[in-house]
Nucleic acid binder design. Structure first.
Length: 637
RNA sequence: GCCGGAGUAGCUCAGCUGGUAGAGCAGCCGCCUUGUAAGCGGCAGGCCGUGGGUUCGAGUCCCGCCUCCGGCUCCA
């Protein structure tokens, strides 16, 4: 048989030759350093036979940055972890231990609880294993033999996995530890030069909270200590961009025990907030939305009608003004209010599409342990809207919304990931309706060139949806905007419009929040910019520094003139050195610093621009520059 | 809700095995009169999250609760 090497040359091998055989045929050094073979683009254990004609690439310990090479290294390290844990904690039951982004984990059921302080000893044990030397042997066996083996070892999770495994069952053994595993794995443990156990957490067996909670140990591994150090340094840098840290540092907002999950917005944070609100309001108006405002409190009947009382009660707040009265519910969503508003008057098909927009406050009582800075709050403000349409109008309306999405996210230079969720098993409406609805959503995504993934069966019972996701600085994914088709709620509220046929019809409603929650969007934005907001967003756009006391009059006047032009400019005339005041302006990430002393005049201002160094500009040139930068917030203006 | 960790001055953090609470920055008051990333000195600032317990004595040990952090689960 033949295989094709990366340089397109062909290598002749005996039939049934493995990746390792191929490496040996090329050279002993390569065989020694080989960790993995990539055959026709997918990773394959070195020990497995290659297919005739396959294009192969041998990955070695020198491919330290290759994702697949790291993946196999970490997977093998996970097995060393399990071996170490079994030695140190006899009687432990092992579950699964895959590589993940940036590392690996292994889930265990410990006979007695462990804490983080136990990790050090386990990490030591792993290092000892590596120093002692470990090689991985692969074997294949029948399901019966595998079951018998894990039953004999008292490993119920492995028994369960073996029972469900498809195809041949393979085992990997290193030292005296054998694991049910598809592989691939390293040949031996020598290439594992840096290991670090990074955390301990509870995790439910198979991710289902009705199951036993196991103990998950997280870790990471690299081909060199330098790579591990670089990784830790990257994490540290990411932490510096964390919106919770920047929120305090830049005086944008704070969170308090007095109202968990509800941000206190400081004046500077409020500038960002209002910029988003302005953007929302301006674009809604341009695109035919009508702004409305509906109550915060509703009787229980409203939510019984909408279905929230039945399905969402545990996330809702209820209030009662006086003992003995029926409680009222604080709204967790705007839709019921908008339904009532639609139903308050007779509607004609000529009124549709009718687009109600609202960004009032919502309250959702999130489950304990899930709050997270601005990204998961109880006090939620969405750029919400409900669009009432006829079936014929769905396509055009969805299309316009996707266009709107692009416009909004482009303002900040970010690209959300789109997810199309299609019909679930339990659903309302006809298959024909679902075909049309899903088709409308997918077509709009395609037409606007948005990349998306499909989540089959993940739609709501009342309609399919498009969700937009973004990733935070810790690598977690958050849902931002959402566009949901709903055939159901208008029916529940008995909403109708008069058609051209002089008969009553039910409208379809499209729920949509494009930025999603403003709190969450701002949190993501703070991290995206690392606090260095573009000029049009920056809470303080420029700071004027008088060199000495005698310049205060001039700097005050300069600040006033720029302020009158609509710019956010302040003056730092504290009795501190210029160097110190510049340092603080830099730490606050103020885009422009204007130092003003004896040498400055309207013809020559000393301008220090964030990221661009110093220059000398006339007042008029500076003003022109400011106007140009401010226009980035609204290019159509 | 679950697993693990934490809560000390406005902020960042120190306080070992129990013995009367500390630093830097910020603040305030002086001095300096300031030219592109920290000038100098002084002062003030703490129900050590909260309720209980152990102890002669608790920031420190034990229990409950609240909140936060890292995960899991959840997320119309």
């Amino acid at each position: 048989m033949k295989v094709v090497l990366p340089d397109s040359s062909e290598l002749e091998l005996p039939d049934g030759a493995s990746g390792l055989d191929a490496a040996r045929a090329i050279g002993p050094k390569l065989a020694e350093q080989a960790v993995l073979v990539r055959a026709n683009g997918s990773v394959r254990d070195l020990r497995l036979p290659l297919e005739d004609g396959a294009e192969i690439q041998i990955l070695t310990t020198r491919d330290t940055g290759d994702e697949d090479a790291l993946w196999v290294l970490r997977h093998s390290t996970a097995h060393l972890l399990a071996e170490a844990v079994m030695r140190l904690h006899p009687g432990v039951k092992i579950a699964i231990g895959p590589p993940i982004a940036d590392g690996f984990y292994y889930d265990f059921e410990f006979p007695a609880p462990i804490t983080e302080s136990d990790l050090e000893a386990i990490e030591e044990e792993i290092r000892r294993e590596i120093a002692e030397g470990r090689t991985w042997e692969r074997e294949e066996l029948s399901r019966e033999d595998a079951l018998a083996r894990f039953e004999a070892e008292g490993q119920p999770y492995k028994v369960e996995l073996a029972r469900e495994a498809e195809g041949e069952i393979s085992l990997y053994t290193q030292g005296d530890f054998t694991d049910l595993c598809r592989g691939p794995h390293l040949q031996d443990a020598k290439p594992i030069k840096a290991v670090k156990l990074t955390g301990l957490a509870g995790a439910y067996w198979r991710g289902d909270e009705r199951n036993t909670q196991l103990t998950r140990i997280y870790g990471t591994a690299f081909y060199s200590q330098a790579d591990l150090d670089a990784h830790l340094a990257r994490l540290e840098e990411a932490r510096a961009r964390d919106h919770r840290r920047l929120g305090t540092q830049l005086d944008l907002f704070h969170l308090s025990d007095h109202s968990p999950g509800s941000p206190f917005w400081h004046p500077k944070g409020m500038v960002l907030w209002n910029a988003l609100e302005d953007l929302r309001r301006r674009e809604n108006r341009r695109r035919g939305y009508l702004e409305v405002k509906t109550p915060l409190l509703y009787d229980l009947q409203t939510y019984k009608t909408s279905g929230h009382y039945e399905n969402y009660e545990e996330n809702m707040f209820f209030v009662r003004a006086h003992e003995g009265e029926e409680p009222m519910a604080l709204k967790p969503m705007n839709c019921p209010g908008h339904m009532l508003l639609f139903g308050s008057q007779l509607r004609s098909y000529r009124d549709l599409p009718l687009r109600y927009a609202e960004s009032s406050t919502l309250h959702r009582d999130e489950r304990g342990g899930t709050l997270h800075g601005l990204l998961r709050v109880k006090h939620i403000t969405q750029d919400d809207a409900h669009v009432f349409v006829t079936e014929d109008q769905i396509q055009g309306e969805i299309d316009a919304m996707i266009d709107f999405v692009r416009y909004l996210y482009d303002r900040f230079g970010v690209t959300p990931r789109a997810e199309l969720s299609t019909r679930p098993e339990k659903r309302l409406g006809t298959d024909e309706q679902w075909d049309r609805a899903e088709g409308a959503l997918e077509e709009a995504l395609k037409r606007h060139g948005m990349e998306y993934v499909i989540s089959p069966g993940e739609g709501t019972f009342y309609g399919p949806k498009i969700d937009l996701h973004m990733t935070d600085v810790l690598g977690r994914s958050w849902q931002m905007g959402t566009i949901q088709l709903d055939y159901q709620m208008p029916v529940q509220f008995g909403l109708t419009y008069m058609g051209p046929d002089n008969r009553e019809h039910s409208p379809v409603v499209i729920h949509r929040a494009l930025l999603g929650s403003l709190e969450r969007f701002l949190g993501i934005l703070v991290e995206h910019y690392g606090g260095e907001f573009p000029f049009w967003l920056a809470p303080v756009q420029a700071r004027v520094l008088p060199v000495g006391e005698s310049h205060r009059e001039a700097t005050g006047a300069l600040q006033q003139r720029l302020f009158a032009e609509g710019f956010r400019v302040d003056v730092d005339e504290r009795d501190e050195t210029v160097g110190k005041r510049i340092r603080e302006a830099e730490l606050e990430k103020v885009p422009f610093v204007l130092v003003y002393g004896d040498r400055e005049s309207d013809d020559a201002l000393a301008v220090r621009e964030r990221g661009a160094g110093q220059s000398t500009l006339s007042y008029d040139a500076l003003l022109a520059r400011f106007r140009e930068l401010a226009a980035e917030g609204d290019p159509e203006a």
